[in-house]
Design a binder for these strands. Structure first.
Length: 121
DNA sequence: GACCTGACGCCCC
DNA sequence: AGGGGCGCCAGGT
Protein backbone atom coordinates (compact mmCIF):
# COMPACT_ATOMS: atom_id res chain seq x y z
CA UNK A 1 0.00 0.00 0.00
CA UNK A 2 1.18 3.48 -0.73
CA UNK A 3 2.71 5.21 2.21
CA UNK A 4 1.80 8.36 0.40
CA UNK A 5 -1.27 9.95 1.87
CA UNK A 6 -3.51 10.60 -1.01
CA UNK A 7 -6.74 11.32 0.79
CA UNK A 8 -9.61 11.78 -1.61
CA UNK A 9 -12.01 12.61 1.18
CA UNK A 10 -9.93 15.48 2.37
CA UNK A 11 -11.41 17.72 -0.28
CA UNK A 12 -14.86 16.38 0.50
CA UNK A 13 -14.41 17.15 4.17
CA UNK A 14 -13.11 20.57 3.30
CA UNK A 15 -16.19 21.35 1.24
CA UNK A 16 -18.34 20.05 4.04
CA UNK A 17 -16.57 22.26 6.52
CA UNK A 18 -17.01 25.25 4.24
CA UNK A 19 -20.68 24.45 4.05
CA UNK A 20 -21.03 24.25 7.82
CA UNK A 21 -19.42 27.66 8.20
CA UNK A 22 -21.66 29.15 5.54
CA UNK A 23 -24.75 27.61 7.15
CA UNK A 24 -24.01 29.18 10.50
CA UNK A 25 -23.13 32.49 8.94
CA UNK A 26 -26.48 32.60 7.18
CA UNK A 27 -28.20 32.24 10.55
CA UNK A 28 -26.82 35.49 11.91
CA UNK A 29 -29.81 37.83 12.19
CA UNK A 30 -29.73 41.10 10.33
CA UNK A 31 -28.69 43.84 12.68
CA UNK A 32 -26.51 41.50 14.70
CA UNK A 33 -22.91 40.34 14.32
CA UNK A 34 -21.02 37.21 15.28
CA UNK A 35 -17.35 36.37 15.51
CA UNK A 36 -14.91 33.92 13.96
CA UNK A 37 -14.25 32.36 17.33
CA UNK A 38 -17.93 31.92 18.16
CA UNK A 39 -18.55 30.08 14.91
CA UNK A 40 -15.51 27.84 15.36
CA UNK A 41 -16.62 27.27 18.93
CA UNK A 42 -20.14 26.35 17.90
CA UNK A 43 -18.99 23.97 15.19
CA UNK A 44 -16.43 22.50 17.59
CA UNK A 45 -14.35 22.10 14.50
CA UNK A 46 -11.29 23.85 13.24
CA UNK A 47 -10.22 27.17 14.64
CA UNK A 48 -11.10 30.81 14.30
CA UNK A 49 -8.45 31.09 11.63
CA UNK A 50 -10.13 28.38 9.59
CA UNK A 51 -13.44 30.22 9.76
CA UNK A 52 -11.74 33.23 8.27
CA UNK A 53 -10.14 31.01 5.70
CA UNK A 54 -13.53 29.56 4.76
CA UNK A 55 -15.19 32.94 4.53
CA UNK A 56 -12.34 34.12 2.36
CA UNK A 57 -13.54 31.65 -0.26
CA UNK A 58 -17.23 32.36 0.13
CA UNK A 59 -17.26 34.11 -3.22
CA UNK A 60 -17.00 30.67 -4.79
CA UNK A 61 -20.35 29.75 -3.31
CA UNK A 62 -23.46 30.24 -5.39
CA UNK A 63 -25.45 31.39 -2.39
CA UNK A 64 -25.10 34.82 -0.93
CA UNK A 65 -23.31 34.64 2.39
CA UNK A 66 -23.74 37.56 4.82
CA UNK A 67 -20.06 37.41 5.60
CA UNK A 68 -20.11 41.08 6.59
CA UNK A 69 -21.83 40.06 9.83
CA UNK A 70 -18.72 38.23 11.00
CA UNK A 71 -16.19 40.36 12.83
CA UNK A 72 -13.34 39.59 15.17
CA UNK A 73 -13.84 39.28 18.90
CA UNK A 74 -13.25 42.99 19.49
CA UNK A 75 -15.87 43.97 16.94
CA UNK A 76 -13.31 45.09 14.42
CA UNK A 77 -14.01 44.72 10.70
CA UNK A 78 -10.84 42.77 10.17
CA UNK A 79 -12.04 41.26 6.91
CA UNK A 80 -13.13 44.44 5.21
CA UNK A 81 -10.25 44.49 2.74
CA UNK A 82 -11.38 41.19 1.26
CA UNK A 83 -14.68 42.54 0.00
CA UNK A 84 -15.21 43.92 -3.48
CA UNK A 85 -14.47 47.38 -2.17
CA UNK A 86 -12.75 48.28 1.09
CA UNK A 87 -15.88 50.04 2.35
CA UNK A 88 -18.49 47.48 1.33
CA UNK A 89 -18.48 45.60 4.63
CA UNK A 90 -19.08 48.75 6.64
CA UNK A 91 -21.76 49.95 4.23
CA UNK A 92 -23.68 46.70 4.53
CA UNK A 93 -23.54 46.74 8.32
CA UNK A 94 -24.63 50.37 8.45
CA UNK A 95 -27.52 49.59 6.14
CA UNK A 96 -28.61 47.06 8.76
CA UNK A 97 -28.57 49.75 11.42
CA UNK A 98 -25.19 48.96 12.95
CA UNK A 99 -23.07 51.94 13.87
CA UNK A 100 -19.40 51.71 13.06
CA UNK A 101 -16.67 54.04 14.15
CA UNK A 102 -13.06 53.65 13.15
CA UNK A 103 -13.67 50.20 11.62
CA UNK A 104 -15.17 48.97 14.87
CA UNK A 105 -18.71 47.95 15.79
CA UNK A 106 -20.10 50.29 18.40
CA UNK A 107 -21.89 48.49 21.24
CA UNK A 108 -20.35 45.18 20.29
CA UNK A 109 -21.58 43.69 23.56
CA UNK A 110 -25.21 44.35 22.71
CA UNK A 111 -25.01 43.34 19.08
CA UNK A 112 -22.95 40.19 19.49
CA UNK A 113 -24.87 37.07 18.59
CA UNK A 114 -23.60 33.59 19.46
CA UNK A 115 -24.93 30.67 17.37
CA UNK A 116 -25.72 28.87 20.61
CA UNK A 117 -28.51 31.37 21.19
CA UNK A 118 -30.34 29.54 18.47
CA UNK A 119 -32.90 27.30 20.13
CA UNK A 120 -33.25 24.87 17.33
CA UNK A 121 -30.32 23.35 15.49
C1' DG B 1 10.15 20.14 3.42
C1' DA B 2 11.22 24.23 6.15
C1' DC B 3 9.40 28.66 6.57
C1' DC B 4 6.12 32.34 6.26
C1' DT B 5 1.57 34.24 6.36
C1' DG B 6 -3.08 34.80 7.50
C1' DA B 7 -10.88 37.76 7.43
C1' DC B 8 -8.19 34.68 15.07
C1' DG B 9 -8.02 34.51 20.08
C1' DC B 10 -6.28 33.22 24.79
C1' DC B 11 -2.76 34.20 28.17
C1' DC B 12 0.37 37.00 30.39
C1' DC B 13 2.50 40.85 31.54
C1' DA C 1 -5.78 48.35 29.46
C1' DG C 2 -3.12 47.89 25.34
C1' DG C 3 0.52 45.10 23.41
C1' DG C 4 3.36 40.96 22.61
C1' DG C 5 3.84 35.74 22.58
C1' DC C 6 2.14 31.72 21.04
C1' DG C 7 -1.15 27.98 19.44
C1' DC C 8 -4.07 27.26 15.83
C1' DC C 9 -4.37 24.75 10.73
C1' DA C 10 -4.30 25.25 5.89
C1' DG C 11 -1.83 27.25 1.61
C1' DG C 12 1.68 29.32 -0.77
C1' DT C 13 6.75 29.79 -1.87
Amino acid sequence: MPTKKISPDKDVKKDHYFQRVYDVTRLIPSGKVSTYGAIADFLALGSARMVGWALNHCHSSDDIIPAHRVVNRLGELSGRLHFATPTLMQERLESEGIEIIDHKVVKMNELFWHPRELEEY
